[in-house]
């Protein structure tokens, strides 16, 4: 116990054992998996049609946003190139399903159904469809353990989307709150601000939403403001999560090149007027 609290020597042993016990999670989760499956089988045609329509509408909305995103990203990368800073690489994601929950009420950790066999490594960020979910803390053969951002032991470097004020969002052990740590009372943070990952520290990719500021309390006696943040991720409802893979630094150059190509194509499709601009930048660089 002492060894583990201070070193990482026992991690390989843990992951080996995890491969043995992971079936137990799946058996324990089976009532929920089964009820989902049964629900899918017995839903009526009308329900399916209605759901299909809703989903189609969402796909339309999202594809419209993503078209804009491609153009914006290309523009952003051009600007970054002009400034001489490195272009951001795209992140790959892997969809994983929740198969277990750690039973201890003092902690928030879940088990997902992808492990070392899918290339998951310790420290990878996990998202759900709404925002940052947590990070991988232990990888077994076929499952991994993920600590949620609200866990008392978890903290994530963040910035305020509106003005870039940096802070650290620590878990509180409560289901619906994070707390921004060491925020000075003069910091420009108001209720409703969107908090996103800053990418500092290199563990979490920058720019993913973490939560919205739900209250700012300034005590006259304290040098720090107490800022509570409500996570945007649906921490207790999401059954599918996304594990983020950082682009491999070794293949950085080539993927960056591919990326440029893809962007130029996207640009051509998205906006004819931008084309000349892009050519100019290409010539400069």
């Amino acid at each position: 116990m002492t060894v583990e609290s201070s070193t990482r020597l026992l991690d390989p042993l843990r992951s080996t054992l995890a491969s043995f016990v992971s079936p137990i999670y799946i058996v324990a989760e089976s009532p929920y998996l089964l009820s989902d499956a049964v629900g899918n089988v017995i839903s009526t045609r009308d329900q399916l049609v209605a759901e299909n329509q809703v989903l189609e509408r969402r796909v339309l909305e999202l594809s419209q946003i993503s078209q804009q995103y491609l153009a914006l990203k290309a523009e952003n990368d051009r600007m970054r190139a002009l400034l001489g800073s490195q272009a951001r690489l795209p992140y790959e994601v892997l969809v994983a399903e929740l198969v277990g929950v750690i039973p201890d009420p003092t902690t928030f950790q879940i088990i997902i159904d992808k492990g070392a066999d899918s290339g998951i490594r310790q420290g990878q960020a996990v998202l759900d469809e709404h925002g940052l979910f947590g990070q991988v803390v232990e990888v077994g053969g076929f499952t991994s353990r993920v600590i949620l951002i609200t866990d008392r032991d978890h903290a994530v470097p963040v910035r305020i989307n509106r003005n870039g004020v940096r802070s650290v969002a620590g878990g509180t052990g409560e289901r619906d709150f994070l707390e921004l740590e060491n925020v000075s009372i003069t910091a420009d943070i108001v209720e409703g601000d969107i908090v996103e990952t800053s990418g500092l520290g290199g563990r979490f990719p920058p720019g993913y939403p973490v939560g919205t500021v739900s209250s700012v309390v300034i005590e006259p006696t304290s040098a720090y403001a107490q800022v509570l943040v409500r996570p945007t991720a649906q921490l207790d409802q999401s059954h599918h999560v996304l594990v983020i893979f950082k682009p491999d630094p070794a293949s950085e150059a080539e993927s960056a090149a591919e990326d440029d190509g893809a962007q130029v194509e996207a640009e051509l499709e998205a906006d004819e007027a931008d084309e000349a601009d892009s050519g100019a930048v290409g010539a400069v660089s």
């Binding site: 116990m1 026992l10 843990r14 054992l17 043995f20 016990v21 750690i102 201890d104 902690t107 353990r145």
Partner: peptide
């Protein structure tokens, strides 16, 4: 107990003890 530790995400050796 070691298996239980991994299952419950406790420090290794705790449940064994």
């Amino acid at each position: 107990g070691l298996l239980v530790d991994v299952l419950y995400a406790d420090p290794l050796g705790f449940n064994g003890f």
